[in-house]
Design a protein around this nucleic acid. Sequence first.
DNA 1: CTCCCGCTATTTTTT
DNA 2: ATAGCGGGAG
Length: 735
Amino acid sequence: MINTGAPGCVTDKIPLNDVQKQAVLYSEGPELVFAGAGTGKTRVLTAKIAFLIQEKGVYPNRIFSATFTNKAAREMRERVESLVGIPCDSLWIGTFHSLCVRILRREAPVLGYKSSFTIYDRDDQKAVIKKVLKELDIEERSIPPKRAIQAIARFKNQCMRPAEAENRAGGFCEEQIARIYRRYTAVLSAANAMDFDDLITNTVYLFTKEPAVRKAYQQRFSHILVDEYQDTNNSQLHFVKNLAGSNPNVFAVGDDDQSIYGWRGANVENILNFDKHFANTKIFMLEQNYRSTNPVLDFANALIVAGKKRSPKKLWCTVKTGTPVQIVRYEDDRQEASVIYEQIQKLGSTGIKPGSVCVLFRTNAQSRAFEAEFRKRNLPYVLVGAMSFYERKEIKDCCAYLRLVINRSDDVAFERIMNTPARGLGDKSKQALQQLARKTGKSMLETVLTQDLSQLGARAQKGFESLKDLFSLLIQMNDEGDSPQAILEQVLEGSGYLSMLEKEDTEESRARIENINELHTTMGFWKNEQPGKHLGDFLEEVSLATDVDKWEKQEGAVNLMTLHCAKGLEFDAVFIAGCEEGIVPSALNFEDPQRLEEERRLLYVGATRARKILQCSFTQQRWRFGSVMTMEKSRYLDAIPPGLYSFTDRGFGNMAVQDSDDQPDTDDQSNHDDTGEFSQETVQYRLGQFVVHEKYGRGKIVNLSGFGGDLRLTVLFDDRRRRRLIARAANLSPA
DNA sequence: CTCCCGCTATTTTTT
DNA sequence: ATAGCGGGAG
């Protein structure tokens, strides 16, 4: 048996409650841990890996562990290392995508790829689709590229190859889409490129096509662990099943209440039916929350219990006191931003620094009002997600040059930079080159590098010659082992990209140069940390990196991000802005009951990020699409019992802070009336709590607003009169 | 071939 | 409000 009691056992080094401990120690086969928000999910996962390595003697390279972000993977590796006390470089831990890339780089030839294949992002996909549409003579307005991309993603999620898609297509439109899919696949394959979905799907395809390869990987990994299991999609499920084979050591952690990626193919059924896919599954439920105060938790619970089709569970915690959750109505988005700014300022006096405050919103566009406000008031902020660094045009241009050095077949990259900066290579020259390329069966860059271009016009010839010279040099530099930095420098000088920006000399072009410098600096740091790696590795990291991966908390800077981005994070204070019909839930999901449930969960995810302070706000008017729109409070807020929050109205005609017109002037509305608990120093007020005022006598708190020194109470006194008091000045004592 | 003007749709969410 | 795109002039 396992020696769990031995001193130095990992379960002794890391504090675990009973259920957590059982989940870590369980070793009898498939295991599913339902881990509610803030219940120590990461802790269990980390302890589990450390336990396997240290107590069960499993070699790190036999553990396969999928996380949701690269950042999570990095942190988990570090924690495991500190627990077991040895480096665990050989541990396979990362996102599904990065782990699959690792497999695919080794096995690429089996699938007809070179292992230097490029990873195409959304923009690259779009460029390919546009090209394909033109080629197939399909108008963009009959099948918008966006729709084609979605359709292809669906095919891939179902692990359906073009042939099958064509067979199944019914009706003209579906046939067209299947044709697009076939052609798209061919273009990517010719470019030696894979899109994000391919990374999973091609690995599954590899396993199906080559049983020997599958078997080798099955034998290689003795344990498979998956985090955020509720966000896995169909192809990922297939991947896990394929990798596991008959191996029962599959461990999944997740929370169906936090499933918010249905729109990109994630299937909650995966977690709800886990025990059907993996026989004899043992299920553990983590319900004790270590993150939030009671008011936050009660609020979040109320938000989520109204949902349908979920595994029943209820989070609880031992911290019974805390600031009530606030729901606030604002006039408009400008006021929302400015009052939230003021509240963040005031939080400072309660010891909550801007760095542990987060403003959450549904759409990236909502960040503008906050950015404007914070900039005006000189409050530093970090905008996570949104336009990520690597999505900027100048960065993508640089990366396109670099990509071509690694993969000469990458025609999308070639077309991108062919005439950037301008080399006199317009549409005509492009077509001429493409024709030549088609004849020789080579890619565009290879054609430029190896073919005789003398039939082309003098101007075009000159342009292509300069590209030939540039890339000959770049490729040579890379072959000789020059650093990514040096190669980037040569791109910037040799292509004229830098002088183009310098000549432009606008505020924008200066910012672009700044960004390019940042890329250069990043490369330097990267190379320092990973001396053995090359340009190709850097580009791979870039294409799989998310903004959250890079995000680091800064003491003085408020965090701004979308609700999706906030998953897995936590903050002392959380403001969820724009809780309005049409925003949460998004108007685009009004018609779909399943997606409406997902929107509810999105709000739940947001709410459970808060440790101490939570505010949900909505506005009466909002600037959208360049005009003012009238907004309504989100339906999800309506469903919450009034006793679980305090309402502040700062809407039109409510200059002063006003009370909601709460109905019950009766005592005892909810379970909030247990024994009054107060933390030692600062007196905490709670809804429903009884207090004594020296003049007005005994009364019950029926509403709270504001924070810290600005905390205002509405007290219903025994004389049946409501009075609004400033908590600090009122000199109240507990009854 | 390049540049610039004005029209348009766009706002979900991201590995 | 604004980025991206097409059309027309130089």
